[in-house]
């Protein structure tokens, strides 16, 4: 097991380096740089000193140097916690990111937990009561859930909560609490706002998870060892939970590993619609305006989450399935 973890850890580091290189190149691929955007803005303002300012900025961020130099400068700073500066906001990237990361993680983790708590029992029920009325209803609902874009659900929920519950919509706080320090009242307000993004973001995953769980478990239920467990005289409940469900979890654990980066970037569109102070919209804007250090930082963060997610998923799989441990 230790050797297995060690091997996985080294390949994890190599992957991260490669991702950061490729990511940096891709971000720089579109013609021009943030400075071109900036220059255009200055031109509109009609500032005469535009060229000089641009030259100064170019020097400061080494933008006149070749790409590999820029990369090395950025990545060596990155490992020391200096993520570079955002051109667009004219602030340290770290400030911008940490600020939003907390809310992002809360929203994402809540919606992840929500989707698992809803999807697993329904998936198990559907698989064990295949083609029953309830199963058909769940199947129908899950297809609707899969096919309706989540921003539409967000809009509908916003309308409902503002029209029928008289709540302020959008954001994570009412206006009164937006800049207030944390207090019980602010926490309550936060929780009142939290459920919409959690439900909206979670719902899309729920539908998918439900289908995966149903399909998997019904495959497993036709396996011979499930029949063996029944032949022992075990109650059906034990047969399903101890012998079948545990074998049906593999793809879901893999899925969990893949969904970790989504915790940072996830549901950008929903966040924009709901004007949530999360990382998604920030990342989206950074890409649009070629704010390369900000975008690059997000990219590496997501890569780290993905790699860690897969790493954790592998360890979890090895714990669930002894066949993986010994390979």
């Amino acid at each position: 097991m230790a050797a297995f973890i060690g091997r996985r850890f080294i390949s994890m580091l190599i992957t991260l380096v490669l991702v950061s290189v490729v990511g940096f190149i891709v971000i720089n691929l579109p013609p021009g740089s943030y400075l071109d955007v900036y220059r255009a803005q200055l031109m509109v303002l009609g500032t005469s000193t535009a060229e000089q300012q641009i030259k100064a900025l170019e020097k400061r961020y080494a933008l006149d140097k070749p790409l590999y130099y820029q990369y090395l400068k950025w990545i060596t700073g990155f490992v020391r916690g200096d993520f570079g500066r955002s051109f667009q906001y004219n602030r340290e990237v770290s400030e911008l990111v940490w600020n939003r990361l907390g809310f992002t993680v809360v929203v994402s983790v809540c919606s992840l937990v929500f989707s698992w708590i809803v999807a697993l029992p329904i998936g198990i029920y559907s698989a064990t009561h295949k083609y029953s009325a309830a199963d058909n209803i769940f199947t129908f609902l899950s297809f609707i859930g899969l096919s309706i874009p989540s921003f539409l659900i967000a809009l509908v929920l916003m309308v409902i909560s503002s029209r029928y519950f008289g709540m302020s919509v959008g954001g994570l706080f009412s206006r009164a609490y937006e800049n207030a320090p944390w207090s019980w009242a602010k926490l309550v307000d936060f929780l009142q706002h939290l459920w919409i993004p959690v439900v909206v973001v979670g719902l899309a995953d729920t539908a998918g998870l439900m289908r995966v769980m149903r399909g998997n478990l019904s495959d497993i239920l036709s396996m011979q060892y499930v029949q063996t467990a029944r032949a022992k005289g075990l109650p059906e409940r034990v047969v399903i939970y101890k012998h079948a469900v545990r074998n049906a979890l593999h793809p879901l654990i893999m899925n969990l590993g893949m969904s970790l980066p989504g915790i940072i970037s996830g549901s950008t569109v929903v966040s924009i619609v709901l004007s949530l102070p999360t990382c998604g919209p920030l990342y989206f804007n950074a890409l649009r305006s070629q704010d390369m250090f900000l975008a690059g930082t997000f990219l590496v963060f997501m890569a780290i989450m993905l790699v860690i997610g897969n790493f954790l998923a592998d360890i979890a799989l090895a714990m669930v399935d002894p066949r993986i441990r010994y390979e």
Binding site: Y225, T228, G233, H243
Partner: peptide, 18 residues
């Protein structure tokens, strides 16, 4: 299982792998 026990044809799949 207690009074009437049964064994199956496929030994490769009749035991739970986990």
């Amino acid at each position: 299982g207690r009074h009437i026990a049964m064994i199956f044809q496929e030994p490769m799949t009749s035991l739970n792998p986990v």
